[in-house]
Design a protein around this nucleic acid. Sequence first.
DNA 1: CTGTTAGCGCTTTCAC
DNA 2: GTGAAAGCGCTAACAG
Lengths: 328, 328
Amino acid sequence: MSKKDITVKEVARRAGVSTATISRVLNGDSKVRPETAARVKEVIKECGYRVNRTARSLKTRKTYTVGIVAPEFKNDFFMSIVTGVEETLKNHGYSVILCSSHESREEEKNRLRLLKEKNVDGAIIIPGSSRGEHFSLMEDTPVVLVDRLVEGFTSDAVLSDNFQGSYDAVRQAVDMGARAIGFLGGDKDLTSARERFEGYAQACRDLGVAFNEETVLFGDYHEDSGYRLMKQLMESDGAPDYVFISNYFMHVGAARYLLESGRDFPGLHVLSFDDLPLAAFFPCISLIIAQPMEEIGRKAADLLLKRIDGSTEKRQTFRLPTSMRILN
Amino acid sequence: MSKKDITVKEVARRAGVSTATISRVLNGDSKVRPETAARVKEVIKECGYRVNRTARSLKTRKTYTVGIVAPEFKNDFFMSIVTGVEETLKNHGYSVILCSSHESREEEKNRLRLLKEKNVDGAIIIPGSSRGEHFSLMEDTPVVLVDRLVEGFTSDAVLSDNFQGSYDAVRQAVDMGARAIGFLGGDKDLTSARERFEGYAQACRDLGVAFNEETVLFGDYHEDSGYRLMKQLMESDGAPDYVFISNYFMHVGAARYLLESGRDFPGLHVLSFDDLPLAAFFPCISLIIAQPMEEIGRKAADLLLKRIDGSTEKRQTFRLPTSMRILN
DNA sequence: CTGTTAGCGCTTTCAC
DNA sequence: GTGAAAGCGCTAACAG
């Protein structure tokens, strides 16, 4: 933004009209004589005028900017969501500010405060945990939660149908001949981890699958946890033939264990959440529960746009169905 | 941003001072009597005042925002760079606007124009192609190019040392016994693709590796291209034992071919660029040339910050060294 | 249809 | 140390 930036005032002077008229042309106001509009557009092109959106925002109280907050971005899962969000919002003239919260509640809070100060028109948040009192910071700024819910804060939300996805996977495994299914779970502090466990547990009960406490293990959604739990499970006495893994990163860790152990695991069947590009390459993979990630992002953006435009409908939580990909 | 937002004016009224004093306190100006400052801070806390950064930016002509433009974001490679950028900039009080250019020059141009209108303090760009006349749009806004260079536009840039990385890989392969090395290359329109080829070619010449035109294939950096070229190479008569693959996505495609073909490839050695989490799982992988992606992002951000702060040094291009990971 | 005018909320001389 | 006042560039009544 250099000193010599051309302003509406300058354009007005050159076109011999008032700044109000320039503004009208800029905003497509119909009440401008065509010849006037043409002349103004001419001048604008000539001198390379560009609107100053900061000034416009100050006046209109609209920034056409939304924040997207997530624990981190260097993973395909969150980025697919971000992609869906960005595409959709871009088509509506909005831009996206990226905010990583590093799984820290304090950081999450700081980012929200900043977004508020930057006057974003709304925010899409993948919460770092189930606790969300600080989300009240956003007061009357529209918010859509994605992937996880939060206690103490109600808003629109878009999630996968984790329960059903898990349930269906277990049923499919049973059809394939499973008698016992081990479980590697994420941090129960996250709603999605709880829901996936519930779906698994309920299906086991409904379908008469042996439910052995020792083969149901919990850690967190990260790779190391998957490695560790898979190792623990495979080295235990009653290692099951079927293993349900709760997300992609745990799956990566588990796969790493299977490869590094140097052992063979004949008859082992892995069922896992998340259909990222390489999941199908992993050892023993039998069934993948795919979340529609980009669609989740698009849906979240659509919802947010509705809120921003003042839709007054009551808060809604959308659960998008997962799909199954059977590999062998 | 609701009607009842508290402004400096309101804080001034409540604290019984002028808005100038509030501003001074907000900005840590020392020329404020401690007692006054304390009282102001008290009031600020009490009424939950938050600065309006849009207004501040209009006045100071500084947005503390930078744009980051890339062809797309749903891939680990670009996102690792973005992560490095975001972390670094966040630590300096900047936020990041995400702009996908979809490999389209027109779209890239639109995004740059928008960034300009939003008065970003600078931009970090992963160009979609070698053509960059439209980058002149950014006039006197600091720009740092990442990963790829562009003709017709000079600016700071941060890249991997593609030539050296390729060269070293070929030398290592020769040490491992390679006599002929096939090559799967990216789109020659990209500087990085050209550089990787040059490094490979030079090393072959220097080390006396047979350089067979029929085993040097070019496509683009995408998965399908990797699949197709690998298939072509493996089904040809003189299929080499060593294959150099120019980036991660081609590697994914090539790996998919190797798996799906159902054949065995005894003695096949794959050398590939990019150390993404799963590369080491791929069939026949022998050597990975790792780019320091997050570091590239951090370096780019550092450079940009220097430019923003008015460093007047001449434009620089940094080439960060790659490293080798030998797998077998 | 077009111009005049009054700000949006903040920072920043320039006086005192 | 502090305040008064002038804008940053734009839009939106309100007149005409």
